[in-house]
Write a protein that binds this DNA or RNA. Structure first.
Lengths: 205, 205
DNA sequence: TTGGCCAGATACTCTGAGTATGGAATATCC
DNA sequence: GGATATTCCATACTCAGAGTATCTGGCCAA
């Protein structure tokens, strides 16, 4: 681990600049509507640099996606780690997730465009981390004997997509804050009837 | 309303031929991977004819989509119309829907590609018919006092997307028939805990 | 018959992703 | 420390394919 030389710093800076421009443009104009020349120009570079660092347009998008995705996953994990009780962890995580949905970049990049650009299967591969989080929480709940339905990959998957849709609804609403609240209530009710039907309070043992 | 002349018959035939080729190619190769020249050639025509009948590639796709969508909606409506009791109508409709998901064209065109090609908002506009069906059934259920949650556009939307995801899961499975069964069970359980928690039997009054 | 019109064909433009190549700076080797 | 390889990025190109402009042959109405 030698200290980074000037050269390497420059290289990383151009790469980061490309990712930044791409994130900005993909978010604002959409993947199909932004050309690679634009991305490069916005970073004061040329397509040559871009193709040096990334395999192609899709690969560039994937990197951008991963960045945003990781950021959100991080906050969800942190929110969940604050508590121990399974149900509380789940609701905390969901809250953090829904809050993240107010983030324009997450909305546009991860929710709206990712499936269109990469296709559903590839997209699901990249979503595996998030799905894993949800799956783990549901299993915890099951172990604690707090769920009617036993967890299964299919259940997790279906619930995850439901959350994504709820998330998109938040982003599309004219008043996202209000929508956030409405969605929060609905999701809690849903989870409650699906999993916690036996408990009236979220904090019950 | 005069009888159709030869000429008009020919015109309708070429239009239909274009739609057929497009359906075939979009289904098999995907929207982005099929060129309009291919579509035209497959119908033994040229791009000129295609642009004469359709405003562009997206418009062509929309027509194809509408065709498939209407076909499925039709079967769902018919299945629901066979019974009167709200809960039975819902389960019948869902069964018909999930069966339809075994259809390759519905899978590829409506579920997989539509959002990518047209964008989510336009896609939802075209899904309005289907959503309306689900919404009506849920309201019926609520009127009959058979649901814990009161119906709302958001609830309908979220449940609808959940069904779409379940539908995609069916289509992707190595054994769609088996997946169909698994999904059927899960969906029934879910709806049961969300809406019919008070009833043990699907046919109870 | 004749002029207009419509379905469809032909030939074009133009954008943008991807490629080939060049060249300057830096790293590596002897 | 000079020669050589390698890295990073720029310039100049190809090529596919969506969309457009224009043409033509047949049908219908007057």
């Amino acid at each position: 681990m030698t200290v980074k030389g000037r050269r390497q710093e420059y290289v990383e800076a151009t790469r980061a600049a490309l990712l930044d421009s791409a994130l900005e443009l993909f978010t604002e104009k959409g993947f199909a509507q932004t050309s690679l020349d634009e991305v490069a120009a916005a970073a004061r570079l040329t397509k040559g640099a871009l193709y040096h660092h990334f395999a192609g347009k899709q690969a560039l998008f994937e990197q951008v996606l991963a960045t945003v995705n990781d950021r959100i996953a991080q906050t969800v994990v942190e929110a969940g780690a604050e508590v121990d009780e399974p149900w509380a962890r789940l609701t905390r995580g969901l809250d953090a997730f829904l809050d993240a949905c107010l983030d324009r970049e997450y909305q546009r990049i991860c929710l709206r465009q990712a499936p269109a650009v990469l296709g559903w299967e590839r997209c699901r591969e990249l979503e595996a981390g998030m799905m894993g989080l949800l799956d783990a929480m549901l299993r915890e709940l099951a172990v604690a004997g707090r769920s009617r339905l036993q967890p299964s990959p299919l259940l997790t998957r279906v619930l995850f997509r439901m959350l994504s849709e709820a998330a998109m609804a938040i982003g599309e609403a004219e008043d996202p804050k209000a929508a956030r609240v409405e969605v929060g209530v609905l999701v809690e009710e849903l989870l409650h009837s699906v999993h916690g039907g036996n408990a009236g309070s979220l904090t019950s043992r």
